[in-house]
Amino acid sequence: MKFHTVEVEGVEALGRYVLLRYPWSGAIEPGQFTMARAAGYPTTFDPFLARPFSFYDHDGETASLLFEVRGRGTQLLAGAKETIEVSRPLGKGFRVGEENGRSLLLGGGVGVAPFKFLSRRLDELGVEHDVVLGFVDEGVAGVAEDFPRAKVATMDGSLGVRGTVLDAVGDLSEYSAIYACGPNAMLAAVKKAANGIELCQLSVEERMGCGNGSCNGCVVPTKARGLVRSCIEGPVFDAEVLAW
C-alpha cells in the first residue's frame, strides 16, 4: 500500500475527541476512510499497522479525521506535530443523490465522524436532512457544537434527550433514507427500526490489516454472499445485505 506524507494543518480537541486536519485535494466520497499513522515506515515497527479512520470532512482542499484516543496508534496521531502518513481514500461511501428524499443521519459516539461530510454533501445536493448524535454523556458531546443543526441524545441525560439516538427521533417513517454509524448494538437497533424504509445504510467497523482488500481480515457476514471484505465492499453497507 502506498502512503502519502501530508502536512498536519492542525490538531485540536473537540470535546474528548481529536480533530486532525491535513491537505488533500483528490476526490473523497462521504463514508470513505483512510489508513493513517503518525510516522512513516520504517521509523516505527510499533505500532506496525496503520489505523482506519472515516473522513470527518473534506472541502476539496483540506481533509479531516475525528478520532477517539484508544491505544497507541491514536495516541501518536493525537500528538502528531508536522506530518502524518495517509493512504488514498478507500472503500465505498454512502449512496446519495439528488433523488434522495428526506434523510436521517444517526451517529453514535465517535461514529458521528462521517456525518459532518455527508451532511455537507447532502446540503450541496439540496437534500433535506436531519442529524441526530448520541453520546454516553455530556463530556464526550463536545463535538456536537460542530453540528449546529443536530439533535443530541445522551445516555445519562446530561445533554439533550435522555436515551439513544433512536429515542431522540420521532417518526422514522418520515424519512426515505437513513444512514447510521456507531457501535454494533446501535447499528443493529437502527436496522431493526428502519425496517420498511427505502434506503438504510450502515457504516461498520471491523479490524483492518491493509485497507486495500489484500489481507481478508476485515470481513463482515452478508446474507447472500458469506463473509465479504468491509474495506472493499464497505465500510458502508445496505442494512439488508448484512447478516446481523
Partner: peptide
C-alpha cells in the same frame, strides 16, 4: 471456503497474527 470468524488479525510489535482460514 468462508474462512474463520473475526477477529482475524491482531497486531504485534513488528508484525501481526492472522487466522484468515484460507478464505
Amino acid at each position: 471456503r468462508d474462512g474463520n470468524p473475526t477477529p482475524r488479525i491482531a497486531e504485534t510489535p513488528a508484525g501481526m497474527v492472522n487466522s484468515i482460514g484460507l478464505q
